[in-house]
Design a protein around this nucleic acid. Structure first.
Length: 553
RNA sequence: GCGCCAGUAGCUCAGUUGGAUAGAGCAACGGACUUCUAAUCCGUAGGCCGAGGGUUCGAAUCCUUCCUGGCGCGCCA
């Protein structure tokens, strides 16, 4: 719809140049058209005349007048007016809008998809929590945002891969192994001294007990080998929990990528060699450093420690280079905001190795404050009394949980109130949106019970949809594709949430004011058609968020 | 001290990439169920967009200096 109007404006501009009413001869490649907040300002408004004022050396209103004259006869526009300092307000003919309904119905669950990202492949890496303990609430937010960003990108035509990076090499895994082994010995009646930096939480005891059942007591192994075995066992078990919890949350990964495999394939060393060849790394104090300050970082970073072990950063270098070698045009990392200090070194590393740093986009997910009835829920990872993601999902449900996580921009902190999310009431926006969907389904049930046929595109008389609120609904439906594109290009899935709330509100209001099933069959058919288009768009938007669209509530 | 994020109605937050009179939900107050689900709707009230300065036809949005809150600033992950 917008595109059609944009084309019409370009044609009109050319016409103005041809007949001499405008003189600069330039057609701006971008013509801004926006949906005005105030409906009195028409369906679309353009500031074109104002932006052209300089090149044209004329007053904006004068330019606008010339343009409007050229557009006057266009069948697309029912009404054009010049307002304020030089805005051009367009009101489109209702018949144009009816075409949107056809398209919604024809495209069905594909409605809203576009091809703007076609030909570009993007990897979204998210969650990637260390496999040393269950997911907590903060991981949950990252999980949902990453998943929704991926979904929105896909809907905009990008080719998307969802990946989980498994940190199964390095210190924290060893720590898990040691912790399990200690708990195992404890189970065997030994008095132990639990390591200072060990994982204290209860689940470590569970892991130890399970290991004991499956693998025995490990008496015949050296300390080193026993820790290794415990670590392997623990990582496998914990990854299994994580996968199960994510599945319960409706999240699926295309790929689980092992950090350890980077070492096994010697990719880390290979990458370090490249860095050395490029003169980007240097040795100092028995350690190997990357000169990230060369590319804007505020200090250089260690790759290999003086004891010979690798830093997390070293494998990250290899991992991210390998991502690009796999052919992704763009790579998105979803991190907790507390890791934001790592961005400069990652970008520096990419720049050093010849990749434009913009090809890596890091989404920072701000903290989640867990509340119950407005009171903060105290969580201490050390003490082990933290609330897991699984507990939250089990308590409030996946739909509410996901919706709440997506209700805010990801770079602002989120208060997550368990009682509010659980409430099946007016206060809970999830149900508000889902209820709108269920209401349309209910109307459909009533219609078929009354023997009213399902409306067919060929026979519906759209001119029965003449109320302002009906046209407003159609305009809202027409906006959907553009909304998805905006959400995708900006990595802002929360836009979909706000769109849903707006659309649901418009629908509820309409529902309360007007009956769909009325005496007049033609009106009934037209309205049924309209509300079913609303249903389709609600369902499509909810699907992007991974929230269900119930037919009955 | 340096860096990142935030600061918009009593509370929680949007604000279409610089547009017209700054919006929604909750809370408050007043209304609507013999009519397709009241998990809904309609109305009233609520604002120095943290503060100052700058950029221009035009700023919540951009630049700058402060103030406040959160998070970072390891040869931890």
């Amino acid at each position: 719809m917008k595109e059609q109007l944009r084309q019409a404006i370009k044609t009109a501009l050319q016409q103005c140049y041809d007949n001499g009413s405008l003189s600069s001869g330039e057609i701006p490649q971008e013509i801004q058209l926006e949906v005005p907040k105030n409906p009195d300002h028409g369906d679309f408004a353009s500031n074109l005349a104002m932006t052209m004022a300089k090149a044209e050396r004329k007053a904006p209103r004068q330019i606008a007048t010339a343009l409007v004259a050229a557009l006057q006869d266009n069948p697309l526009c029912a009404e054009i007016e010049i307002a304020g300092p030089g805005f051009i307000n367009f009101r489109l003919a209702p018949s144009c809008w009816y075409g949107v309904l056809d398209q919604v119905m024809r495209d069905g669950d594909q409605y809203g998809r576009s091809q703007v990202g076609s030909g570009t492949s993007i990897q979204v890496e998210f969650v990637s929590a260390n496999p040393t303990g269950p997911l907590h609430i903060g991981h949950g937010r990252g999980a949902v945002v990453g998943d929704a960003v991926a979904a929105v990108l896909q809907a905009a035509g990008f080719e998307v891969q969802r990946e989980y990076y498994v940190n199964d090499a390095g210190n924290q895994v060893k720590t898990l192994g040691r912790s399990i082994l200690m708990r195992l010995r404890e189970l065997q009646g030994e008095t132990i001294e639990f390591p200072e930096d060990g994982y204290q939480a209860e689940y470590v005891r569970e892991l130890a007990a399970k290991l004991r059942r499956e693998k025995g007591e490990l008496h015949d192994l050296s300390e080193e080998a026993a820790i290794e075995l415990c670590a392997r066992f623990g990582v496998a078990e914990v990854l299994d929990w994580i996968a199960t919890d994510l599945k319960a949350f409706g999240i699926h990964f295309d790929n689980w990528y092992s950090e350890k495999s980077l070492y096994d394939r010697h990719l880390v060393d290979a990458e370090l060699v490249k860095l050395k060849e490029k003169g980007l790394s240097f040795e100092q104090d028995d350690a190997l450093w990357l000169r990230t300050t060369e590319y804007g970082d505020d200090k250089d970073r260690v790759l290999i420690k003086s004891d010979g072990s690798y830093t997390y950063f070293a494998s990250d270098v290899a991992y991210h280079m390998e991502k690009f070698e796999r052919g992704f045009d763009r790579v998105i990392d979803v991190w907790g905001a507390d890791h934001h200090g790592y961005i400069p070194r990652m970008k520096a590393m990419l720049a050093g190795l010849g990749h434009p740093p913009e090809d890596l986009e890091v989404l920072l997910i701000q903290m989640v404050n867990l509340l119950r009835d407005g009171q903060p829920v105290i969580m201490g990872k050390r003490s082990g009394n933290f609330i897991t993601l699984r507990e939250v999902i089990d308590e409030v449900g996946s739909d509410a949980c996901r919706f709440f996580f997506l209700m805010r921009r990801c770079d602002s902190q989120l208060d997550f109130d368990l009682e509010l999310a659980k409430q099946q009431s007016t206060d809970n926006p999830v149900y508000y949106v889902q209820y709108a969907h269920a209401r349309v389904c209910s109307i459909n049930r009533n219609a078929s019970a009354a023997g009213i046929p399902r409306p067919q595109t060929e026979t519906v008389d759209f001119s029965r949809l003449e109320l302002a609120e009906e046209l407003a609904l159609v305009r809202q439906l027409a906006r959907f594709e553009e909304l998805i594109v905006g959400a995708a290009l900006n990595y802002e899935p929360h836009r979909v949430v706000f769109y849903l709330q707006d659309l649901a509100a418009q629908f509820h209001s309409y529902y309360n004011r007007q009956r769909v099933l009325v005496d007049d069959p033609a009106t009934t058919q037209a309205r049924l058609y309209l509300v079913n288009c609303v249903r389709i768009v609600l369902a499509n938007a909810l699907r992007l968020l991974g929230v269900s669209a119930p037919e009955q509530m």
